[in-house]
């Protein structure tokens, strides 16, 4: 079983990386691009087979290490 953790800066925290990407896209002529936010995706391979147990475990991991709750938020998806 795989878990996919998406970590993003919280709304309201300045994201200079996202801003720079947006700026670059605009410069390339993609004028339809407004706000850009950059985050990261962490893929975990798990031995757990119960999706609910797996999700709860990964949420603990995210709170403890994978995301910094001061500035980041996260989302956990379980894929089989």
């Amino acid at each position: 079983m795989k878990a996919i953790v998406t970590v993003m800066l919280k709304d309201g925290v300045l994201d200079p990386q996202g801003k720079a990407i947006g700026h670059a896209l605009n410069n390339l002529g993609f004028t339809q691009v407004g706000d850009v936010r950059a985050g990261k995706i962490i893929e975990l391979t798990l031995t757990e087979s119960d999706p609910l147990v797996a999700k709860a475990g990964v949420e603990d991991m995210a709170k403890m290490l994978l995301a910094n709750m001061v500035i980041e938020s996260f989302k956990v998806e379980i894929a089989s």
């Binding site: 925290v13 300045l14 200079p16 990386q17 720079a20 910094n68 001061v70 500035i71």
Partner: peptide, 8 residues
Amino acid sequence: ALLRNAGL
């Protein structure tokens, strides 16, 4: 927290 430098 310490974020990426403003100029990246």
